[in-house]
Amino acid sequence: MVIERKWKKWFVFYIPMAVFIVFTLFPFYWMAVTAVRPDGELYRTWRQASATPFWTLQPTLEHFEGLLRTTAFPHWLWNTMLIAMVSTLISLICGMFAGYALARLKFRGSEFLGTAIFVTYLVPQTLLFIPLADIIRDLHLGNTPWALMLTYPTFLIPFCTWLLMGYFKTIPKELEECARIDGATRFGAMVRIIFPVSIPGILSAGIFAFTLSWNEFIYALIFMSSAELKTVPVGVVSELIRGDIFFWGQLMAGALLGSIPVALVYSFFVEYYVTGLTGSVKG
């Protein structure tokens, strides 16, 4: 490391870092405060004075309670989790296979296919969901979790494939060749040599795919109609904006609870995520 003077460190490091932290985290803080503030305190206009603008002395759990009692929130959480996991799994398997094929195998049209897969990523969702609704109807998937588990991979597979392709390319060919000399089949070498050493890359693709599915909104809004089958983002938007007039407390409580599972996944895997990305960006 290049040595710095102390005062300089304040200017180039501590202060900018602090600003970044405030900018990044303040909305979450505000979400949390809003979620525990009683309604009477919540609705103070910008002109009214307030003794405790940035915290509250009477924290309440009424919003959380209301959320869990009057909505199917636990269902939404579970659905989102299940759908995100299954679609991530499907996309990872497809992405690993396709990524390997495109990175390691020689066949005609491989470049074209690679580009084609990438191009599918460009097709906007707002264009697809109406025709997709027809397909979902024809397959009798309407209002079942499978409608989402099978459509989410459409935007996950291209991403996984490309990320893993980059990762696989960085693995030395010799590793595979050694295994082949020892009598492993191509498939066997892929499964037992390439995939295990690519765990960081696979994990980071998986985490990314999981986040994208957790985040998805349009398909879930359009394809799911029963209250118990909704995902968190859709449930929160469609059922918590209500004529109750006072819905912000519950809305923020829902946003907070709905974010915790993904946040946990990340806090466990963030280092893998960085190293995984490191691997693929090298390629």
């Binding site: 109406i130 109807r137 309407g142 209002n143 809004l221 359009i222 394809f223 209250a227 469609s238 904006i241």
Partner: peptide, 25 residues
Amino acid sequence: LNVETVNANDLPARATAAIQSGSGP
């Protein structure tokens, strides 16, 4: 009876999707 309530601004979108996908309320 299964009662679902949504934000009124989302009703037309839901109707379009339901009619198009032939399944829904």
